[in-house]
Amino acid sequence: MTNPIVSAAWLMNHINDSEVIILDARLDQNQSNLENIHPNLQIKGARLFDIKNNFSDSNNPLPNTFPSQEKFTAECQKLGINKNSIIIVYDTLGIYSSPRAWWMFKTMGHSNVFVLDGGLPEWIKEGYPIEIRHETTNFLLGNFEAKLQPEFIKNKEQILENIATKEATLIDARSQDRFNATLEEPRAGLRSGHIPGSINVPYTELLKDGKYKSKEMLSEILNLDDQPLLFTCGSGITACIVLLACELISDNPKAVYDGSWTEWGSTNFPIEK
């Protein structure tokens, strides 16, 4: 199992490698109300991986859903990404939206992708080179080609079926109070509660100071068996934080419920509280 995360020191040692491309996968706003403390800075040479505007299905009313294979290919090529690129993704909160970008590349068939543990805050703390944030898009067109791995994404019907079959373990990354419906959903109009049979692992329990906890601690918190794993959250972002934590310690098959609670909570599908 290849380690899917890299340290700031590793990236600094490889920052000038010709095949390395650094992607800034920040979200300027987030449902967790976390504050970007360096909104105007980026890692030197980073390219903006715009999840909201370029790497989501703009025709889908749900937020952050996977774009088509064709759109993903076109947007990656615009960023100068090639088939042989070694992609390092980071965000400005340490670990937040970067695992989503990482999982999107995996789902689109590109395995040479890694998350910068600690993200921009760790990079700045180490004194490594930064620059004023910009959104340059005039890169040489890359030859990247997406090849969708459909088993990595699940829809609501597949999640509904799993309630009955229990073939996979469904992990919900939202906070405990949202999972237990003691706090209203931040998105208006959604029911509160959780998908029947799911277990709650708030993504915040897996992180410390913007980095993943040790593999030993992750194993203790997650307590995984051999079942396939499915991941859900509010809109498919923080589910990938938990998925990546599981990837650090487990080879179990993994998939994300892309619609997550934003979709499930707006249907008449069963819920538990």
Rank of each mutant, 00 (worst) to 15 (best):
C233S: 07
F269I: 01
T165R: 11
G259P: 04
E151H: 14
T136K: 14
F144R: 00
T204M: 13
A255M: 08
G189V: 09
V113P: 01
K106M: 06
S85Q: 01
L27V: 08
Y128A: 04
E167H: 15
W10C: 03
E126T: 10
Y257M: 07
S97Y: 09
E205S: 08
E184W: 11
T73F: 02
K156N: 07
N180I: 05
C76T: 06
G197L: 00
A255S: 13
T165Q: 10
P39K: 08
A181K: 08
W264R: 01
D177C: 12
K273H: 12
E135I: 06
F105S: 04
I95N: 03
I5R: 09
T73V: 08
S219K: 13
P186K: 04
N252I: 10
K208V: 11
Q176W: 12
H110N: 05
K208H: 14
T204A: 13
M104I: 06
L27F: 10
A239I: 07
N200R: 03
Y128M: 01
C76E: 04
N36W: 12
Q227T: 13
E185C: 04
S266I: 07
T262H: 10
K52P: 07
I81W: 01
N13C: 11
A25V: 03
F72T: 02
D226Q: 15
A25R: 02
E126D: 13
M217P: 03
I221Y: 00
F152W: 11
Y90K: 02
L34P: 08
N3W: 09
E19P: 02
S214G: 08
K78V: 13
A255K: 07
N200A: 09
N16R: 15
V115M: 06
E157A: 14
R133F: 15
F55H: 04
P99D: 05
E75G: 05
K83M: 12
N252Q: 09
T169S: 11
V89E: 05
G142P: 03
K83H: 10
S175H: 13
W103C: 01
Y90H: 03
L148C: 11
H38G: 10
T262I: 12
N200Y: 10
H194R: 03
F114P: 00
I221S: 00
L148Y: 12
Q149E: 10
F66M: 14
I124W: 08
D50Q: 07
N33D: 15
K147H: 14
I15T: 09
P67T: 03
K215I: 05
V20I: 14
S7T: 15
L183S: 13
K213E: 00
